[in-house]
């Protein structure tokens, strides 16, 4: 096993991890703040991919498509939170079922507009560079870079600005935070919209690397949700989990095959849940 091989695999793992971290971080934030998981996350990724597809098709630069994906994801997320989720602040399981139905609607509307067939987005940055003796696609490097910058920026915002404190306050007790002057409803709206914008961004970034189709989101849901199960609602743990799962997934796929890789990360979710303490405060039921 030479150095170039290791570099190649390492970068591949980073690319996988950075995409799932982008989506899972948004999921973890909304899980922490609102106690819900957006089951339509995969479909928001798909929206991002179709945004790029559409903007590139009408001749605009690729970057415009990516930015548009973020904006569309943000707006649709805000709309979802206002129109659907706000009714269910006391019934999280109904809220996630609402997002589930929303996912079906998004998929079918996209299918009606764009058709069922796979489409392809041309790679805007073809070619590769040599890193440590390994040839690695430039586009993937950019993808890793963009993800790291976005995740880093969000982490900075959460830790260095008052926003982070507000997020923690609302997560602990939304009503109480409201009485202390935190506009928890607006904060939830923004956080959910940011989470869907990140999913949409992730979708726009992977568009050139994959088949773009109405059902493409489901392929990613599995890994995202395992990341959230393993990492929980803590953002830092989710990042660690995303990396760990990318390692297991890529290495197992390389050594055995993709089915065993999927089962391995499924087993990871079960093992982590089984090993974790029944509850944070030691309560029994």
């Amino acid at each position: 096993m030479d150095f170039a091989f290791l570099v190649d695999q390492g970068l591949g793992i980073l690319a996988t991890a950075s995409v799932s971290a982008l989506v899972a971080m948004g999921l973890a934030l909304s899980f922490r703040l609102m106690g819900i998981i957006n089951l339509a996350s995969g479909d928001f990724m798909m929206i991002g991919a179709y945004s790029v597809l559409t903007f590139v098709a009408i001749g605009l630069p690729y970057v415009v498509g990516v930015l548009a994906a973020c904006v569309i994801g943000f707006l649709l997320g805000a709309l979802t939170e206002r129109g659907l989720l706000q009714r269910f602040s006391r019934a999280p399981e109904l809220a996630i079922l609402g997002t589930f139905g929303l996912g079906i609607v998004i998929r079918q509307v996209v299918e009606l507009i764009y058709g069922k067939n796979f489409q392809f987005v041309e790679n805007p940055l073809p070619g590769s560079v040599e890193i440590g003796g390994a040839e690695f696609s430039i586009y993937r490097l950019v993808l890793i870079g963009v993800s790291v910058v976005v995740i880093g920026a969000l982490l900075l915002v959460l830790t260095l600005t008052p926003l982070g404190v507000k997020v923690r306050a609302v997560a602990a007790d939304g009503d109480l935070a409201e009485t202390l002057g935190v506009r928890s409803r607006r904060l939830k709206l923004v956080v959910f919209a940011v989470s869907t914008a990140m999913a949409s961004l992730a979708g726009s970034l992977i568009a050139p690397l994959t088949n773009v189709g109405p059902g493409m989101g489901n392929a990613y849901l599995f890994v995202m949700f395992v990341v959230v199960i393993v990492g929980g609602a803590r953002v830092s743990m989710v990042l660690v989990a995303a990396l760990a799962i990318a390692i297991v997934q890529n290495v197992t796929t390389l050594v055995v095959d993709s089915l065993v890789a999927k089962l391995a990360i499924l087993a990871m979710a079960f093992i982590v849940l089984a090993a974790s303490r029944p509850s944070t405060k030691g309560a029994i039921v």
């Binding site: 998981i37 399981e93 849901l221 599995f222 199960i229 499924l266 979710a269 029994i284 039921v285």
Partner: peptide, 14 residues
């Protein structure tokens, strides 16, 4: 232990 409905739903989903 203490059951989080959402986590369990996700577990069955994956």
């Amino acid at each position: 232990g203490r059951v989080n409905v959402i986590t369990f739903a996700l577990l069955t989903f994956v």
